[in-house]
Design a protein around this nucleic acid. Structure first.
Lengths: 216, 216, 216, 216
DNA sequence: AATGAATGAGGTTTCATTCAT
DNA sequence: TATGAATGAAACCTCATTCAT
């Protein structure tokens, strides 16, 4: 009979330890966002958390470790929300528009974090891999959708579906990056949503629906 | 008899100075590509150029200065990657294809440096500005071209030309980045050129020419 | 029952920190005296104190800071070299003699440091200011005493008290400098004390007391 | 028969060499006065003279050499003028006042240079010696005068003439230094002349002349 | 666990002096 | 001689990490 064995943890962490760890993670996020990972200093993180130098090392081995903790806390925030309309909605233009709107809104909410991830990917292999996996999943899914549309005669059959998927993902994500991170212009989202969606549909030559109201 | 009057320039730089500066720029590029900007050491640059420590400081005030010199060389090539066909070539598809091919080839040649610039832009305001200026120039030029096509009825008139220009630039540059930097896959360029160009033309609804051979 | 309430101070500095700081100040003084400020090296100070490089920077921001600490110790001694007899001793000649003796003895003890301060004052604004403040305080105090004596008819009433005070201070301090720093002659102090005091009293025309034994 | 032999100089200096040397000396003086000898840089001297680095080394072996050249040019400026009244004027008060006035006026004219010499004396043995010799000559001469007055009953016979001479010289020179260099106050000289002279005469107990107009 | 002082490797920068042109 | 680039010794300072309290 299998028995539920309580895995003996060394000891319940002290209350102040828990508090300090939380303070350090919060401070680390702020410092990373402000200075970038590369230029951040452990000194600043400890100071921001209001604890001593050495305390940092009670919780993390080094800066990378702290970063991992920051990202752990942010997993949820990073997921794109947005309903999957692809299956229920027969009008591709509407699906595309809704997806783009959801993506841009999520990006705007997490702009600083996205900037951080972008930076990390250029600096640390580990995060480059992480980004690549997310991106690959996205691109692969879209490539499948494109092939489906090509088969049903609703998309330009001369396009290489994989490359096209990558290109269109790039278009949307890089535009979002430029607007929200590089420019920091808190512009009206809707024209951007409309333009990106129209370009996307045009690019694949997806036939325009009669009823334009469905786009919304 | 006309007389050649020498305009008194500040004085021609000495031959060895020119040589050393060139050697330093070359070495700097190599070191930056290998170690990244942050982890690079001036010592290594000087050693790579085969000159003394202080010689570096005869030519540059600091590492940022040296990087600027390296990037100056890059700028030229990436801003004007190919011949300007726009004026002589009546077929937009051919222009787009040629431009994309030239851009991708230039990107491939400078992939590691482009990655570096990308990284720096996320870390240092100064380089973010530099990238933004380059990008803005590109986007503005394309937006003008799009408006011209819209007026002559050769492009989708419902598109916002500025946003569309940004989006399409993003598509090309980010795709190049993914392929050459993130993936590092030295794939066959031609399918990518063709797909990007077709997506671009489609996206703007530029009418396809009768004679397809012109695309090449 | 009264309760001893501990006032929460910023936290007592650690014992080793106090010890190291003291060692650094002592070493700094030795190095400054031996090499002068300009030619001194932080490395040597740290080595002399038997601590690591960086430890210096835990206590001082830079060399100037360390010097300030060294001079703080000096200030105390040079400003209040002896007991204040002015209030208890009715005979001005005795007061003057005692003050001069105390000053010269203090100067002799700190001759090399005084030389250093002299040097720095000619080179660095900051130390010129420091010396000026010390000197001004001294001169102002003496000017007050001179006016008091003038009012009570015990000093030459035709003298400008401020200028006279400056002149007499200059006489004493510069004589000390010449003897202990420029000449480095470790002469018998007493004749100098007597002569300076007599000149001082004469200069102000302070009436000589009947009982000469009081001068000692 | 003695023959005048022309000592064969290597070659007459070129005209531009002479000019450059002069420019360098002038620039060196300016830099020394502005930055002090210790903090001055050869770079700045060459730049100030409008010549190249290396040109400095065509004329001087190092900074000390340049300083010697600066001082050579200034020998005349350094001499104290002032008529020697001691022999012709029977009234010591008048002699003292005239000497002090001449000294202070000369000091004021050469204040920056005096500051420079002061600084150099604290830094370089060579200049300390130079200053000491000048000072010693002065002090010795005054001591002789004091002894003469003591013998003729016109000065306090209890004073040590050598020490008194040093002290009084110190009083005057240091007061001048404070006023013209440390304070930089371009005050009215006359009260200072009067006060110093009165203190001086008082200090030695030189009997006041009946006719006060002779002081001027 | 928390503290913060101590450590020390390692980079940047300055500038007097040399030297090829 | 003049030029100014090249040299390289030498010093400063930072900051991740360790460790005694």
């Amino acid at each position: 009979v299998p028995v539920d064995v309580e895995i003996p943890r060394a000891r319940a962490p002290r209350a102040d330890a828990v508090r300090n760890r939380a303070k350090l993670v919060r401070a680390a996020r702020e410092v990373f966002e402000a200075d970038g990972f590369v230029n951040s200093r452990i000194t600043d993180i400890a100071a921001g958390a209001g604890v001593a130098h050495g305390c940092f090392y009670s919780h993390f081995r080094n800066k990378e470790d702290a970063l991992a903790a920051v990202l752990d806390e942010l997993q949820e925030e990073m997921l794109h929300p947005g309903p999957n309309l692809a299956l229920t909605e027969p009008n591709p233009w509407a699906v595309i528009t809704a997806a783009n709107r959801a993506y841009l809104e999520a990006y705007r909410r997490n702009a600083r974090l996205m900037a951080l991830l972008e930076q990390l990917a250029t600096v640390d292999e580990r995060f480059a891999d992480m980004r690549k996996q997310r991106s690959d999943a996205f691109v692969t899914r879209n490539a499948r959708a494109i092939r489906r549309l090509q088969r049903s005669g609703q998309a330009d059959q001369e396009l290489d579906a994989d490359i096209a998927s990558l290109a269109i993902s790039s278009m949307v994500s890089r535009t979002a990056y430029t607007i929200f991170v590089a420019d920091r212009e808190p512009a009206d989202l809707e024209p951007i949503v409309q333009t990106l969606s129209r370009l996307w549909a045009n690019a694949l030559r997806i036939p325009e629906p009669k009823d334009r109201s469905a786009d919304q």
